[in-house]
């Protein structure tokens, strides 16, 4: 049984590296990524599980890191935007102008990357279902959809 009752040092698997972090049970994964590991790609938006700006990938599933406890992540593989190295979706976002202010971009890219990994032949319906997890205040939705479609159906 894992028991963590106070501030502790735990090991996380982030972007393929074992990283030791100081965490207490009430810390969210978003907080730990940004303040302990200086991985600031995941953004604090609503911090309520609504906007998707903090999206990372855990064991292949896209998750909103503001509604995950850091201590839950022991033994799981976490991928942040910093862990993507020239993934096709990154190039597609540039080519299709899938961003304006950029605050939501890392979250959208992580969702699109998880979609491409899990459902490389996703149709328009599935693509829209996944994209509805994230909000873009600059309303770049059409360009973002074009970006992900361009890697799913080149």
């Amino acid at each position: 049984m894992i028991k963590i009752s106070d501030t502790s040092i735990i090991e996380l698997d982030v972007n393929g590296e074992k990283r030791k972090v100081v965490a207490e049970p009430s810390d969210t994964l978003l907080y730990t990524l940004r303040t302990e590991l200086n991985l600031t790609g995941a953004k604090p938006g609503c911090e309520n599980g609504d906007c998707g700006a903090c999206t990372v990938i855990v064991d292949g599933w896209s998750v909103k890191s503001c509604i995950v406890l850091t201590v839950e992540m022991i033994g799981h593989k976490i991928t942040t935007i910093e862990g993507l190295k020239n993934a096709p979706i990154q190039k597609a976002f540039v080519e299709k102008w899938g961003f304006q202010c950029g605050f939501c971009t890392s979250g959208f890219i992580m969702v699109c990357h998880a979609l491409a990994e899990q459902h490389p032949e996703a149709d328009e319906y599935v693509t829209e279902e996944w994209l509805q997890s994230n909000l873009c205040r600059c309303t770049s939705y059409q360009e973002i959809k074009e970006a992900v479609t361009s890697i799913l159906h080149p």
């Binding site: 049970p25 009430s26 969210t28």
Partner: peptide
Amino acid sequence: MIPFKFEYYKPDTLKEA
């Protein structure tokens, strides 16, 4: 941030939980 402290347990069995 969650504004209070609590403990975290992850048991391995239903009985333990």
